[in-house]
Design a binder for these strands. Structure first.
Lengths: 233, 233, 233, 233
DNA sequence: AATGAATGAGTCTTCATTCAT
DNA sequence: TATGAATGAAGACTCATTCAT
């Protein structure tokens, strides 16, 4: 079998796994389900992926690539201010998390792993199968790619004046990212708070984006004095 | 056995569960481990908690209470501006998430559950044992308590002028909360990014807090003119 | 507590057990259910009945008494031929089995036990708790009471000429009883055979009773000569 | 492994199960016992049979097939009157129930299930594992095969004059079957009644068979004496 | 008589993974 | 490459029964 055929089958398994993980979750998805759905034998699945964790890491890798492409797509469009890029990124990011719940969960799970991985005392508790996964290793290598692109966007904003100059690109970007991660987390619960708390998805999102922008560029009040000052003339 | 004794034993089991969940994780912790560690029989564990999920919901409930007390402690101290409260809360929240990883994971897990619970189509997929847990039901009742306190803090800030008046208390607070949730999530990975990206925990945190404050109050440059102008009158 | 009060409570438990065994079956009925439904503690149940099997034997005893009273009620009505008694008994028996499924199941279960009990090699396999139950012992004593009454009815029939004289009362009665037992067993499945087999409950029962009578008294052909002769007068 | 090997192993497990169910009963037989006795792993048992109930249904299916073959063997012998067939069947049936207690219990258990299954209100209470068992489904399909053969035998008897022409084949056969079922049930208890009731297996059986025959063909003796006596007047 | 907390043996079932072919 | 039979460790949960009070 030519290596392209091999890759094709590998991709088939991966796609099936993504589908099943999405619909049933990691734990509820059995290796046999994957095999059956892919129309191959259980044993063959283990030929292409060392074990279930390895398969999940492969899925995570794909999720990460997808997310990265979102960052890249935003970044490569010329003629936008840095703030605009961050704004566009925020929208795209939120859309992504909503459209690809499982991908996103995989990415967050990977972040947790990295955290453990970085703590010498906790690293030993990570499932060896994960550490041995080539996909996990690749992920370690590219884990900062999104961050770097995001930081670049902020940097652009600093240069073009759309973002407050006193900010640190790194800190600003990771803070933005924090907001996006947390937003996704709260989105569900908040949307249904009902009765006493009147915040709803429809009005939270624009408010959230506005606050995010304000945080980066400086706030409304900042403009008012200008207006007042203008009237001084 | 007086009911206080019953509560005492219930608490004993709960504490053991918290300890084991913390060190070994939910899945890796066996009910038998809990019983053994508590010095009781397996059956008795099931006498006090209907099943493993119920026990976990009890743990979650405790975690939630703990988090709530943090909000309350911050809130009840008089003489602070709203912004100061939010700032103090942010510090306390971050400390809490770091000191009580498991608690925090339980809370986030609960949030996910709530999300599913609120979607009619997904509710059926929730483990019935969870839905039947009295602790889960209690959690549903108190789920917004932290949010309400946080919104109060922002409201205070709006009244005392420490927070930009044009903000909506609800939106502002949930955005702050998003930041805190996301921060915890990124804290680990970011802290060790090393080499190319020079952001480190020590310097991210103050920057993050600063951005959070700026977002709420308006940026330094923006406010100064106001002060100057005010003195003009 | 006066012994009458004691008996009252004992009866209460028994009635609850009958109710629950009827609705949920023996296995599915937990001792705790019985206690709860009776409004007493689990421990007290064990004060009145040595164990679950003992309770079941008590239920069986009551079932047997009930069945016996049916036999007796039929038997004590004067002025009926033996064949008529057996006919009435058959109707009453069938009604009883339908109205008291659980009672009837208990009686059949007891018959199985007796069978084992009578085989020396199998007796050791009977649950000791059953053998030790006083109710089981009482049942052993009265197990033939129904049979005796039935045999008496046949004997009456032999005497009054309503039943063929060449029959043995014992054999005839137990054969009748076999039919009744088997009828109950088949009633359910037969009633719904539908399509290809056109037998239905409504027409099976009269046919069944007719056959039973014919078996005892001799058949239609047998009677014809009587009719013919009668017309000779 | 060729599919014949697969069937061979499946049969091995089934045979072991039959052996153990026979000797220890369904409840007392553990799946692990079956595996151990068959010299395979516990897991493999579940590979061939979905669960314990499924295994039991497979046993029931085999029992039914065996019973069916008894009916068929009787039926296919040419040159016998219908009454003779029923007589032969009765003997064979009784022998079967005595030689295969467990098989027979399984068949009766299945009949109970069918009864529940046919009542819409009770169907929901049947263990889903039973309903899902392919063997249960097959049993539903063939449940009437024995009945049909039996009805054929009676029909033959009606045609050849060995059975009273006024009888309905269906009703007559199911009544015969009732007798056989009930006979088996009473056989045990009756055989040992001892003392007061002098019926014993040895003399019950011929009397029982005789009554059964009389019921079907009409009694010769019954008429003659009456005729004689009547003519005395 | 009465309570109810406490026991613990008992079992079905799942599933990732391996390996002979 | 590909199969699928075979493994076996692992674990949640039940419930009749007891016994200290």
């Amino acid at each position: 079998m030519p290596s392209s055929a091999r890759e094709k089958k590998s991709k088939l398994i991966l796609d099936v796994a993504i589908k099943l993980f999405t619909h049933k979750g990691y734990v509820a998805t059995k290796m046999e389900d994957v095999a059956k759905e892919a129309g191959i034998s259980k044993g063959l699945t283990y030929f292409y992926f060392k074990n279930k964790e390895d398969l999940y890491m492969a899925v995570t890798k794909k999720a990460f690539d997808e997310l990265k492409s979102i960052f890249r797509d935003i970044y490569k469009v010329k003629g936008k201010s840095g703030l605009q890029m961050i704004t566009d990124l925020s929208h795209a990011y939120i859309d992504f998390t909503q459209a690809n719940r499982m991908y996103y969960a995989a990415i967050l799970n990977f972040m947790d792993l990295v955290q453990q991985y970085n703590h010498e005392s906790l690293r030993a508790e990570i499932d060896p199968q994960i550490l041995e996964s080539e996909h996990f290793q690749k992920l370690l290598e590219i884990q900062h790619d999104c961050g770097k692109l995001g930081i670049q966007m902020i940097s652009n904003g600093l240069r073009d004046g759309s973002i407050r100059p006193e900010l640190s690109a790194e800190i600003a970007f990771y803070t933005v990212w924090s907001m996006l991660i947390g937003y996704e987390r709260l989105m569900g619960p908040v949307g249904y708070e009902g009765k006493e708390i009147k915040i709803h998805l429809e009005n939270w999102k624009p408010g959230f984006i506005k606050l995010l922008q304000d945080m980066l560029k400086g706030t409304v009040q900042a403009t008012k004095p200008q207006v007042v000052q203008a009237s001084l003339f």
